[in-house]
């Protein structure tokens, strides 16, 4: 590889190298290929495998409490609902680190990841989802506002390309 960086260069090699560096920079400056995604006009569709906001389904939950036990950040807790004998999980998104252990340990498929990740909150209390609120469908606010979903494509020329879906 770049063995000759250690050889003493003369004015000519130096000039050549300066020219090569500037030419490389110019080539990319004038190129129209960009890796950037212009969020929130565009939103990367992350697909099924992404570990985003966690969806809980009450009808599937067997109240085993494994999710609360395995949570490394103590974000998941079991709550007692009024008029119910069983306890159900609630999540605190101030603490959640999205490791997905709760989803992996759930034996009843009551917890699953969604690709939604771009939520923001005005108040800290809103980030705590007690079981009544936890059983919700997550929607990306950008998508709600009309962002166009794009998918990530690996490309030999640009690295990553984002194609409209």
């Amino acid at each position: 590889m770049a063995e000759d960086v250690y050889k003493p260069g003369n004015l000519l090699t130096s000039l050549k190298r300066h020219a090569a560096a500037i030419a490389t920079g110019l080539r990319y400056l004038l190129s129209t290929k960009r890796m950037t995604v212009r969020y929130p006009e565009f939103l990367i569709d992350l697909g099924e495998g992404y570990r985003g906001m966690i969806r809980w389904r009450r009808e599937r939950c067997i109240s085993c409490g494994l999710c609360a036990q395995i949570c490394p950040a103590a974000a998941m807790k079991m709550y007692k609902l009024p008029g119910e004998k069983k306890m159900f999980p609630g999540i605190n998104y101030q603490r959640c680190i999205f490791c997905g252990f709760c989803v992996d340990v759930c034996p009843a498929f009551a917890l699953e990841h969604t690709p939604v990740h771009d939520l923001s909150y005005e108040e800290l209390d809103e980030m705590i989802y007690i079981p009544e609120r936890f059983d919700t469908e997550w929607v990306s606010p950008a998508l709600k506002e009309g962002a166009r979903p794009v998918k990530v494509v690996f490309d030999e020329e640009v690295g990553l390309r984002h194609e409209p879906k």
């Binding site: 770049a2 260069g9 130096s14 190298r17 300066h18 090569a20 560096a21 490389t24």
Partner: peptide
């Protein structure tokens, strides 16, 4: 990278 950085006389 080699052209713009590693072999760039400034970086050398």
């Amino acid at each position: 990278y080699e052209r713009i950085f590693v072999k760039n006389p400034v970086i050398i």
